[in-house]
Design a binder for these strands. Structure first.
Lengths: 224, 224
DNA sequence: TCCTCATGTGAATCGGCATTCACAACTAGT
DNA sequence: ACTAGTTGTGAATGCCGATTCACATGAGGA
């Protein structure tokens, strides 16, 4: 409506924009990432999806990499916040760990491509650094949880940093990794998540076993 | 051409080679990969390290990707063989699992960059496919081990595919992943591997727990 | 209205890198 | 030695995608 006069414009010049193009670029970048990964996330594709030209991008970001840093940061922060929220809802520490894992699982399954991009895919150093921040924060949070659980004597005294990294690895591999039985034959998504939670529970080494609500994880458990 | 027949070029023409340039290219590619990852593995860099020119590479491989497929396949096969050898040496299945994990750990620690390239780093689809083969084989072997252990009632009856994937994830993340407390402060390499083994042992859910605790890296922050 | 920014446009540029090409030079077979 | 076939050479080519540039256009203040 705003630009009704199309008579002599040969496409050049400014097109009025309602809101900030900057944000729309960030969103477009994330969307392109979700669909096709970095491979398809060319400047042109992003700009197109945002409804602007390639050049416009550079009015808002010094480079493509900077744009992606923003994208990753936003996504990572959102993810983190969600996890933290999940963590505070449980009483026991194992409950918190499970809540975090389950949250991660739910989100990763909901949008595997984005998760993949957030966790694995390649890029230039600048973007990688940002990704690492996210991953490290996540790992740190998990480690903190473990430490508390250890202090509370809920978990055995194992190196929490390593255990945290291992848990992140478990989740990444089983849910977003290159493979992951998820697309596979053997089990439904829900079952997989349940198995995953049992795995985490065992590997953390919880002492008492309150037994998950729907599934009973087999009792083999020697007391110490 | 400005430099036609009148001018004698000294460096041109064939330089006698003893053995197959092909193999030396494969080796060079692996070495470049080990040092700087794919980012530094340009055709020129590889050819240079092999002591030939870029063009020569194309006498032996239809494309750069094909070269890397060879590299990955060779590396993957070697790795696999080593694992299998390790697996057959133990009596119990948990012993085998641990042997495999420990072998992987030893190799990954010995050359993290290569491990990283084998497991994570990006590339074009052709190469990725080859990598996936390797990873999947590895995972499959682990799953087989788990199945046997389950059949022998050594392990609880958990989805072996998922558990195998999870174990692969654990190893990848803690040893070669972006981080991994390995470069860190808290523990020596040996301690980390020991912790890792304990983690795996717990997560697999072995019935009897011979407890291989040899190292006590930290004490809980609680009193006493 | 006129001037000046801020914001866009899209074609041109630039750079990196795989891939090709037009020749050499060595080896083997005759 | 002559001829083919093989293996190398390294400059040229081609492609792809990020980045820049010269030029619009609208909005707001004077």
């Amino acid at each position: 409506m705003t630009n009704g006069s199309q008579r002599r414009r040969k496409g050049r010049g400014r097109t009025p924009r309602d809101g900030s193009t900057r944000e729309r670029l960030i969103r477009a970048a994330r969307e392109v990432l979700e669909r096709g990964g970095y491979a398809t996330a060319s400047v042109i594709a992003i700009a197109e999806r945002a409804g602007v030209s390639a050049g416009a991008l550079y009015r808002h970001f010094p480079s493509k990499a900077d744009l992606f840093v923003e994208v990753l940061r936003a996504a990572g922060e959102g993810e983190l916040a969600e996890m933290n929220a999940a963590a505070t809802q449980a009483e026991s520490f194992i409950g918190r760990v499970e809540a975090v894992v389950a949250t991660y699982a739910r989100r990763a399954l909901h949008n595997r491509r984005l998760a993949w991009a957030l966790v694995y895919e390649p890029v230039d150093p600048l973007v990688d650094a940002e990704r690492l921040v996210y991953r490290r924060n996540y790992c740190r949070g998990m480690a903190a949880l473990l430490r508390q659980g250890i202090a509370a004597r809920e978990f055995p005294n194992e190196n929490p940093d390593l255990t945290a990294a291992a848990l992140v690895g478990v989740i990444s591999e089983t849910l977003v990794g290159p493979l992951s039985p998820i697309g596979g034959e053997s089990a439904s998504e829900a079952e997989i998540v349940a198995s995953l939670l049992r795995f985490c529970r065992r590997s953390v080494g919880v002492r008492d076993v309150p037994a998950l609500r729907k599934i009973r994880p087999r009792r083999a458990r020697t007391s110490e």
